[in-house]
Simulated assay, not measured.
Amino acid sequence: MPASEARAEDIAARWSAVGLTPRVEQHAQLTSIEAEVPESFPAESWRDVLEAVVEADRFGLLANNLNGRTLWAVVRTTAPATGDVRGPGRQR
C-alpha cells in the first residue's frame, strides 16, 4: 500500500473513532477525506481530530448556515509541483 493511501486511511479511521463519518474519494493526484461535523460534536474530541489532520498535506473546516460544518483533508498521491513545495505563501 502506498504511503499516501495509508495516511488517508489513517485519517479516516481516526475521524471514525471520534464519531464522525468520513467520506474518502480517490482522485488522479490526491485523496480527499471529508466529514460533516455536528453541532453537538464534543469539544474534547477536537484534539483527536487535529492530531489526525497533521498527517494531511492540506486540511480545513468549512462552516456556513446552509450546510453546517464540513471537515476536510487532502493527501497528495503524487509529488507536488515545484512551485508548491514550500506551502502557500512561500513560493518564489
Rank of each mutant, 00 (worst) to 15 (best):
H27C: 03
L66F: 08
R69M: 15
W46N: 06
V54P: 00
I33V: 15
W72A: 07
V54G: 06
A43M: 11
L71I: 04
A56H: 01
P38G: 08
T82I: 08
L50G: 04
N65P: 08
S40W: 00
T70D: 04
R76M: 09
S40G: 06
V74K: 06
V53C: 10
D57I: 02
A63M: 13
N67E: 14
L62H: 12
N64H: 01
T77K: 07
V85F: 01
V53N: 15
R58I: 04
S32L: 10
P88Q: 09
G87C: 04
E36M: 08
L66A: 13
L30H: 05
V74E: 13
A63I: 13
E55S: 12
E39T: 10
V74H: 05
R47Y: 02
R76C: 02
E34C: 01
G60W: 01
D48W: 02
L71A: 11
Q29S: 13
D84I: 00
L71P: 05
T77D: 07
W72I: 04
V53K: 04
P42L: 01
V75P: 10
R76T: 02
A81Q: 12
A63H: 10
H27T: 05
V37E: 10
T78Y: 02
E34S: 09
G83D: 12
D48Q: 11
G87H: 05
E44L: 07
I33M: 14
A35I: 04
S40A: 15
R47T: 13
L62W: 07
Q29N: 12
H27A: 14
V75I: 10
N64Y: 00
R69K: 15
E39W: 07
D84H: 06
R69S: 11
S32M: 09
P42R: 01
T77E: 04
L66P: 00
A28L: 09
G68N: 05
W46G: 08
T70I: 15
D48V: 03
L30E: 10
A56D: 04
A28F: 06
P38E: 05
A35S: 12
W72D: 01
G60F: 01
V49F: 10
R69V: 12
I33G: 03
P88A: 15
I33P: 03
A28Q: 11
D84R: 09
R69N: 07
A81D: 13
T82S: 13
V74R: 08
V74S: 05
F41L: 01
T82H: 08
N67A: 14
P88T: 09
E51Y: 09
G68E: 08
I33W: 06
W46K: 07
W72M: 06
D48E: 13
G68S: 05
A63W: 10
W72F: 15
A81V: 10
S32A: 12
A35Y: 02
S40D: 15
V74W: 01
A43E: 15
A79F: 03
